[in-house]
């Protein structure tokens, strides 16, 4: 495995107050970033720390009564040093988040999927439409309050 300690301290120092929390689990590092620091913080991670590859982007619903309700999770990778970092940004219900398409063009479909499944609005996205489901599909199925047995269509 690649030594993680050095660059992580530098990242935290550089991002300063926008890092709300950081933790480690099973050798993976996670930074919880403040939403207002986006997309600048992501540009810094790509430009100054060489995280040139966005491996994955997804949404997580923490539950209806939780604060923040949603997380947008970015898995970043530096292809040269092989360092990996997970970045999470918390969102309230109905809140939008700046798109990462300008930083990593590959975010396009993954953000569409997160919009499709969670209803998270990505501000500035070039084509924010549903990825998998039909355009007139009711609701956002990966939300925890989605009725898995279906809506009552008679009403």
């Amino acid at each position: 495995m690649v030594a993680m300690g050095d660059w992580l301290e530098k990242v935290k120092e550089r991002l300063g107050g926008s890092v709300l929390e950081d933790f480690e689990f099973r050798g993976e590092y996670t930074l919880l970033l403040d939403k207002s620091s986006l997309p600048g913080a992501l540009e810094v991670l790509k430009g100054e720390f060489g995280f040139d590859c966005l491996v994955d982007l997804c949404g997580v619903d923490m539950g209806v009564d939780q604060e923040p309700r949603f997380y947008v999770v970015y898995h970043l990778r530096n292809m040269t040093t092989r360092a990996q970092l997970r970045v999470k940004v918390g969102l309230k219900d109905g809140e939008g988040i700046p798109t990462a398409c300008g930083v990593w063009p590959g975010a396009n479909w993954m953000e569409r999927e997160a919009y499709d499944m969670f209803g998270i609005e990505f501000e500035g996205h070039p084509d924010l439409t549903r990825l998998y489901l039909a355009d007139d599909f009711p609701g956002y199925p990966l939300r925890k309050d989605y009725p898995t047995e279906g809506y009552d269509f008679e009403e």
Partner: peptide, 10 residues
């Protein structure tokens, strides 16, 4: 895409 979506994650 999506014609074969089976909702594996859900």
């Amino acid at each position: 895409v999506g014609y074969l979506h089976r909702g594996t994650e859900k």
